[in-house]
Structure formats: C-alpha cells, structure tokens
Design a protein around this nucleic acid. Structure first.
Lengths: 251, 251
DNA sequence: CGCGAGCTTGATGCCGATCAATGCATGTGG
DNA sequence: CCACATGCATTGATCGGCATCAAGCTCGCG
C-alpha cells in the first residue's frame, strides 16, 4: 500500500508539512468553500459528505456506463481517469490527487462516461450529487464555487488540447512534470522530488505518446541535466530548464 | 455576409425546416429548459436574456484575459474558440453553432481564458452570469440543466483528447465531419451536404494537423468515394464508409 | 531464486510536417 | 471588363519525429 504519506516515508525530508484530513483543512475546501459560510452551514456540508470509501490500487471507483449518483473527492491516494473508443483504444484524460474531484463527466447524461482507477490504495469522500444540488441552491457561495470547479476542469481540458495538438514530445513531458510538481507542491510536497504513481504507458496515453517515447524523453532530460530519473523516482534538478522547454521557442 | 439561412440559399433543398428564433424553439432551450417550468418562470428567463449582440465575421466576442461577465448563446452564425500558449502557438478548442454556449471557461477565474471569434456574421444572446446564478438557485430545473451543459462540455473535451491522443489523420477528419453533420442535422440541415465555415488551417488546428494534411486527406476521401469536395462545399456520399474509418480497426 | 511486469535502449520505417509551387475564387481599382 | 492583388486550397518532393519492432535490463515479489 502506497499513500501520499508514504511519499514522505519513502523519501525522507520529502514532505514539507503535515496533511490534515479535516474538511476545513482538506484540499476539498476548494469545493466546500467554508469561506463566508456560517458554522451551522459547515455542519450541513459535513453531514452531506458523511460517507467515505476505500479503493484498492488497481480497482475502479466507477466505470463508463454505470449510472451516476455521486461525485467523489480524493482524500488520499491517486487516480487516473480514462475514456475509451468503441474500437478499444483508450485515452487517459487526467490524473487526480488529494482534494481533486472525480465524476463531473457523469452529470451530463447521468451515467459515467469514463473509468476512474486508483493508482494506489486510496480514500475518497462521497458527495451525493442530489444533495449537492440542493445545498448549492441554499448557499450561493457553494454554488459559485462548484461552478468554478467545473469551469476549471474545462480550462484544464483546453490546456491538454493545446498540449496534444501542438507540442512535441519533449514539451509535453516537460509540461506534464511541471504541472505535477506544482500540484504536489500545493499539497505540501517538495517541488523538486516526486514518485510517479503511474506507468510510462499511462503517461504516454495521457500525453499522446508511446511508452518508449516517454522513456527515451526521460533519458534525454537526464542526459541534459534537467532531471535525475530512477524508475519512478524523479528529481528535478533544473526547473528553469524544464520551463524553458515548455514556453521557449521550440525551433 | 453568410448566415445559416444562406446555407439554404446557397444550396437549394439544403435546409429541411425553418429555424425559429424564439427562446422556446431556439436550440437554447437546452439551456433554458422550459420543460416543467411555469409560464411566469419562462418570462423571467426571457427578461434575463433580453440583450442581444451582433458580431461581424472575423471579430471576437471576447478575448482571453478580458473579464468575464456573461455567457453567450449562439443565436445565428458560427464561432471558433481558441487558446494560445505563451510562445504564440494557438489551438482551436471548438466550433460553436446555433444553440451552443460560449464563455463557460471564464467562470473559473472570472476572466476569459480563450478567444471566441465569429467565422461568419453572427448574433448571440447575452446571459449575465450573476443573474443566471440567481435564477438557477430559484429553479432547480434550470440549475440541473446548466450543470448538464457544463458537464457535457467536459465530456466533449475528453472526446477531443481521445481524438488528438490516439487517432490518425484520416480518423480525425472523419470524426470531425461526422460530428459536424450530426450537429447540423439536429438543427434541420442536411446530413450529407454542408458548407465549411472554417479554413483548412482552423480545421487543422482543431485536429492537431497541418493545413496541407487536412487538404490531402479531403482529397483522399474524395478519391475513395467518401466525399465530394469543392473548396468549402462538402457532400458526404458514403457516410457508413466514414463511420467505419472512425470506429473500425485502423491497422 | 526465478518469474514477470515494467523500463530502457537500439534499429528501422512510416505518417505527417515542412518547403515550395501552382491553382482557384473573390474583390478592387483602373 | 480586364489586370492584378490577395487569401485560401491543392499538390508534389523531401525530411524528421515518433511509432514500431525487438532485445535486454531492473526490481519487486511469490
């Protein structure tokens, strides 16, 4: 079993500050938005997200086609979401870590349209969608924040489209790593050292590359002195160099 | 000036039924959701979307960075949305026709994150976001439908990721054409004949291809008897053949 | 210890990008 | 009405980045 806590256990001096699992200090606060919400309203939120769920590594939280009842907020652990076409090809559409929401795609048709698979043993908070609807009609702050979260997902997707549509392999991987370290840093982890929770193949699927290309690009980054790569352990040794790859002129 | 009406004018027997511009019969009904809403509630909707706006071909409805006030529903005309990276590359993230919403990306940060450009002279309904928030707290049907629209956009984006990440040029263009004809058909146009509102370059940007590749692929489809292509006039002569390209085994 | 999943690395080939020239439609001014 | 300009599309020749195929390699685990 590997959790985010293990990330600090595995690599000492890796974790910067403790990660408390309370709604008000959970990264889920971005959804719950306690800001400007009274104490009793917070309690209503707490009763709504009363249910928790454990998902073992390799198991799926939900699958495409299942009917949609709830959103899920990652409490601990790590997920991937992937869609598949009728002829079997599939595409990883995102990786989710603590505080991020899963299941927004299911609202449209009231059926999930992608699989959510745990990449390590994980815990999620169950957010019954009907109750969220009701509560967000009562509290405009909650409503607004929920809308922002959906909108943010759309913006993120547009960024991925830009990546898939117009970047070369090196730029894609650099952008991916920078995004990952940024999100980990926001959760109190080191900005320079991380353990990948996903395989080369999953990274490749997300980035529109084959696993061999991902592997080669990691090696090239290492040769160029941007990273130290040991299997899934990554240390960023030249963050500005990586950033330049993404934003700099690429020809 | 080219409008959707001109699409029938340009190609007789092209338009199947008249397209009424009333809220209840507008494709915007997917947003307004008059279903199960009382007459007086409908009137409130009508007062909210009282403002209209004209956008000339080539002009932008909004640009990335501008602050976000309203959503827009396309009434007539045709738009593209595109994001750009810091180093100037840009990516078309979607094409919007009558009844589709523009501006959802702006909710997250209260600033638009993409440009919306009219590809022909167009009219949009202005939907002040604050008022939509208020109204959707009152009417749960409206709330639910608005959520579905945002979710649908997320699902659509995931489909584009699949396309960009794992399809070859022919499959991408076939999928694009099928999607376009499907949406036009839902609006009362022919499923087999259409006029492209965008250039080869814009199609290419959307599909992650260069304009020459788009052009060559059109020519190949014509050679294979799937299409008749005359500049921007397209006639689909073998829809099953196109569909097979998207779903069939590609190796 | 040995198996197997996942990772690395090399050799080769192909799809789509790039560079370049021509064609076609529309519009404008003489 | 023609000459010319302009923007977009088509087509050809060549190139390069990534996919593909194919070995080994590493490491965790039964």
């Amino acid at each position: 079993m590997q959790t985010h806590s293990d990330q600090s256990a595995g690599l000492p001096a890796f974790r910067l500050e403790p990660f408390k699992v309370a709604c008000s200090n959970c990264n889920l606060r971005e959804l719950c938005l306690p800001v400007g919400i009274s104490e009793q309203q917070m309690q209503q939120l707490d009763t709504m997200v009363a249910t928790r769920k454990t998902v073992a590594r390799g198991d799926s939280l939900f699958r495409a086609g299942e009917d949609f009842q709830s959103l899920y907020a990652v409490r601990t652990g790590f997920f991937k979401t992937c869609v598949s076409s009728e002829d079997g090809r599939d595409q990883v559409t995102g990786f989710q870590m603590a505080g991020e929401l899963l299941g927004l795609d299911g609202i449209a048709t009231e059926r999930h349209t992608c699989d959510a698979v745990a990449l390590e043993d994980s815990h999620v908070c169950v957010i019954p969608y009907r109750q969220l609807e009701d509560l967000s009609r009562e509290f405009s702050d909650l409503q607004r924040h929920f809308h922002k979260i959906m909108s943010r997902e759309i913006v993120r997707d547009h960024g991925v489209m830009l990546l898939l549509g117009s970047m070369r392999a090196e730029e894609r991987l650099a952008a991916f790593l920078l995004n990952l370290t940024q999100r980990l840093q926001a959760r109190g982890f080191s900005a320079s050292e991380l353990i990948l929770r996903m395989t080369r193949e999953e990274i490749g699927s997300y980035l529109g590359l084959k696993l061999e290309t991902v592997s080669r690009t990691f090696s090239k980054f290492q040769d160029d002195g941007l990273l130290e790569v040991k299997q899934r352990h990554i240390r960023v040794t030249d963050q500005p160099g990586l950033s330049k790859l993404v934003n700099g002129t690429h020809c």
